[in-house]
Nucleic acid binder design. Sequence first.
DNA 1: TCACTGATGTCGGTGACTGTCGTCAGCGTA
DNA 2: TACGCTGACGACAGTCACCGACATCAGTGA
Lengths: 190, 190
Amino acid sequence: MVRWEPGAQERLAAAALELYASRGFEQTTAADVAQSVGLTERTFFRYFADKREVLFAGQDHFQQLFVANVAAAPPEASAMEAVSFALDAAAVFFPDERRPHSRLRQSIIDANPGLHERELLKLARLTEGMAAALRDRGVPEPQATLAAHTGVTVFGVAFRLWVGEHEERPLGAIEADVLRDLQALSPSVR
Amino acid sequence: MVRWEPGAQERLAAAALELYASRGFEQTTAADVAQSVGLTERTFFRYFADKREVLFAGQDHFQQLFVANVAAAPPEASAMEAVSFALDAAAVFFPDERRPHSRLRQSIIDANPGLHERELLKLARLTEGMAAALRDRGVPEPQATLAAHTGVTVFGVAFRLWVGEHEERPLGAIEADVLRDLQALSPSVR
DNA sequence: TCACTGATGTCGGTGACTGTCGTCAGCGTA
DNA sequence: TACGCTGACGACAGTCACCGACATCAGTGA
């Protein structure tokens, strides 16, 4: 007989999503989440640095993939072309089957400023990772940072559209449209 | 005889900056800050929603000015030209005399992830405000959001350079350079 | 058989934040 | 002059996020 059920981290993450969605983030204590899967508050904080972080587990994996595709772009590709490669990877990471889950998660985040704040931090880390990967490709500063910001902005705007109600296009198609809109913006300066 | 010294909020903000800088943000309690200016912890939280917010008082004023300049751009100006107007306003808000203070403040923020998180939230609010102002000018979505992101990115990157050591150019000059670098990036896609 | 490991529980503490109520100088008003 | 009101603050108690230290014990390998 096993002493504890396996997969504590996954069970905690699933329970947190459910409770945050039903009761609200602030109305749910870390102890509530832990107790709902037969664990203690202390164990919750062993797996997650804080109460918000539980919604962002797996983010590291996504970032790794996103950034890896910058490095995987052909050597002769320009900075923005490499960014475009990474956007393709992002679209693969979020297939349509994942949309309902992403929508629920996003609704929780949107309902709480603190969670929105954490989401922005994750996007900032994504930007930094991407800028570093571009620098590794030989892109100088500040172009590397600017291209990374551009890529993450396109991803962010496209993702928000993707999880929006009534939206049915796949993420990749939305990204392409957003990127086109962005390019149409620049020439109008000066 | 006055019952209390006036300017409680300003005294608290100044004391917080000083203590966060000397002892570190985490090593300073809200009670420490309050006590150092003869007030109680409770009063600290009457003026500031949380311990981080004290470093971002005045941000509203900046945002107001930034956004107002989008609206003040000539009616025939394009989205990116209106953004460029706002960037000019930002440069006026941060004259060179302000640089030492900004540098100190930034060093505190950079030393703490939680403060960095809050800074990102402020920049996101700036982006939202700017997007709304652009929409008021008749710019459609997602162009309004994209132009706003672009503007805030340029401001953010330029500001970071401005507070960097050895940097002596005024903010406006840096902004112009960054904007030029950004524009040079786009044509390379597709 | 036994030492050891690793995941978890237990306990106690700190500090961020909040609701509520009491206090009192200054001010207007009769 | 007396009186009542208001606004800024203090006092107090409570909740909860988070953390350090130590105990527990099933499983594992020698």
